Computed example of a mutant assay.
Amino acid sequence: MNLTPGQAPAPHKPRVAVVFGGRSSEHAVSCMTAAGVLRALDRDRYDVVPVGIATDGRWVLAEDDPDVLEARDRTLPAVDTSGPGVLVPTSTSDRTLRALRPGEVPSTLGNVDVVFPLLHGPFGEDGTLQGLLELGDVPYVGSGVLASAASMDKHYMKVLLAGHGLPVGPYEVVTPRQWETDPDAVLARLAALALPVFVKPARAGSSMGITRVEDPADLRAAIEAAREHDPKVVVEAGIAGRELECGVLQDLDGTPRASELGEIEVVSGHSFYDFEAKYLDEDDVRLTTPADVPPDVRDRVQELAVETFEVMGCEGLARVDVFLTPDGEVVVNEINTMPGFTPISMFPRMWAASGVDYPALVDRLIQLALRRRTGLR
């Protein structure tokens, strides 16, 4: 670029690679999340490169069009694989993205300053993508390898939280070896849990593969359904009470702050907050923010949310889900290091109620990532 005398160079706009899709069963949810983030990113401040990961793991240069990533008429979106492939940097001295077109020499897309990984579930939210970015010394939004992996695994998440004295509900773990060698012993062990129970893949989200079981005779089928998503299964005793959520977001100095609370109520059509209720049947669910709870309950949930965030070693953002029992006890259900992030998802809604709107939320997360070092920290 040629400058006239006295003309200052244009300020550098950080290049943000928005990565979405992925190999997990939450591929479509990730696409919908990416649509919201792509709309919110300020193109005057950031140079944006959308990168989709297909269900077979191929990285492709995606169209910068949020509309194609929305669910329409109950049809879920997917990454369009017709675009050129993408090579990601794996060297600490090179942050260049390269496009691969058939029959052509790889072309340079430019350096990446930060990655916004919007993948949900295994092979993205569970530390695998974070590890790849660490190898290339590329800054990224959200938690690191260990926090992502441990938070994604409902078994180890509960072990860590309980070990630090945080309240978690009764549960049992069904490992692949246990189920494959002696399923009857597993079912006998699960009889100690009070019904109803929720049978869940240990490392999945968006309520994929979850079954509410009220009859012990249905446990075997529920475990098999969960194992379609993950060979390791967690079975949780149902906890009566209200479902509350709280967002956690770090200040630019790294201090974690808690949002206003949200409440989820399934009003019709579903026995619990399942995938269809979350993403397809919005009229069957009531989402309230701020939740109507006494100030002392709000304070307790916010305190537990921040404690959970710090115990798990999270960074950037997380959503903590809890139960409020009829006797006023607060029980931690789980933490999500990359919660649903569409403009109508609970995490952005809770922060909007706390004074941080969606574009400001996206900007904060990118600025946090740009300030944070990679590697051991």
Rank of each mutant, 00 (worst) to 15 (best):
F198V: 07
A78G: 03
T75L: 14
I335T: 09
R74V: 00
E228D: 14
D283K: 12
W59D: 10
K200A: 06
A62S: 07
D113Y: 09
A258M: 07
G238L: 06
V186D: 08
A305S: 06
Y273K: 01
V159W: 15
V86P: 12
R220T: 00
D137A: 12
T81D: 14
R212K: 11
R220I: 09
L317C: 00
A62H: 04
G142C: 06
I223Q: 07
P339C: 15
G205V: 04
D215Q: 04
M32E: 14
V311E: 13
G52C: 08
R72C: 01
G241M: 12
A40P: 01
L132W: 14
A217V: 07
G124D: 02
I239H: 10
D274K: 02
P183E: 15
L61S: 15
F272Q: 13
V332W: 00
Q367D: 13
F123P: 01
V37F: 15
Y140N: 06
Q367L: 10
M350H: 10
K154E: 04
S143H: 09
A62I: 01
G121R: 03
L3E: 08
P139M: 15
H270K: 08
V320S: 06
S25N: 04
A352R: 15
E245W: 11
V105L: 08
Q250C: 13
R177P: 08
A192M: 11
L61D: 11
K154Q: 05
V199I: 01
F341R: 10
P102I: 02
E276A: 10
F347A: 03
I264K: 08
A78P: 05
P343M: 13
L317E: 00
P348L: 06
R257L: 14
V37Q: 10
P339Y: 11
V301R: 03
L187E: 15
K232N: 11
D327S: 14
V105S: 15
E260R: 11
V145E: 07
L317A: 02
D215W: 03
V29H: 04
K200F: 03
N111R: 14
D283C: 01
P231Y: 09
S143C: 08
V51T: 11
Q7P: 06
M208C: 13
N333D: 05
A78Y: 04
D292R: 12
H229C: 00
L304V: 01
V235Q: 10
V29G: 02
E104G: 07
G85I: 08
E125I: 05
R95A: 09
V197I: 01
R377P: 03
G110V: 01
Y140D: 02
P14C: 06
P77I: 02
R203E: 10
A35V: 02
T96R: 13
D56Y: 01
A217S: 09
H120K: 00
R257I: 00
P256V: 07
D137Q: 13
I210C: 03
E224T: 05
V330W: 10
V233P: 10
Q367I: 00
M350G: 12
S268C: 09
D56L: 09
V266E: 15
V159K: 13
A147D: 00
G110D: 14
D274F: 07
L317H: 09
M32Q: 11
V141G: 02
N111A: 15
L87G: 08
L190C: 15
R364G: 13
Y273M: 05
A35L: 12
Q250F: 10
L249R: 01
G6I: 11
L317V: 00
